[in-house]
Amino acid sequence: MESIFAKYKNAGRDSLIPILQDLQEKEGFLSFDSLLSVSRFLNLPLSKIYGVASFYNQFKFNQPGKYQIQVCRGTACHVKGSIKVLDALKRELKIDAGQTTRDGLFSLEVVACVGACSLAPVVCINGEYYAGVTPDSIEKIIDSYREKKEKGE
């Protein structure tokens, strides 16, 4: 964190977003404690910082899971029933979009178009794309990652 702040000597409130971006890149998400440090560094109220950060989709406030699941909710995927896929994932993982499972294995995120409309509906897990996903196929996909974890991969 200090290394990031060092880059922004004498910074004012206009440096808030670049600092948040650097922080997220380094730590994967914006934690309460790190935002508190930003608040002290910039002498800005924590509520203001969270207000700004929560406005933008790019900022995350939960530690991402080992496997980061992105569900495409773009137009084509929507037409092909991605809402049901998302619901099935929420049920399977027992979390909401934007959250991480308690064991830290999975995090679930909704994204706009991933540019793979011909494969709709698409789910992407750690960069791996799953095409034509149905609610019924969710369990199998998730289980395959659970097994991966078991095997220590």
Binding site: P45, Y50, F55
Partner: peptide
């Protein structure tokens, strides 16, 4: 001058 609250989300 307290700023305990702000708009959250969008």
């Amino acid at each position: 001058g307290v700023s305990a609250i702000d708009f959250v989300g969008r």
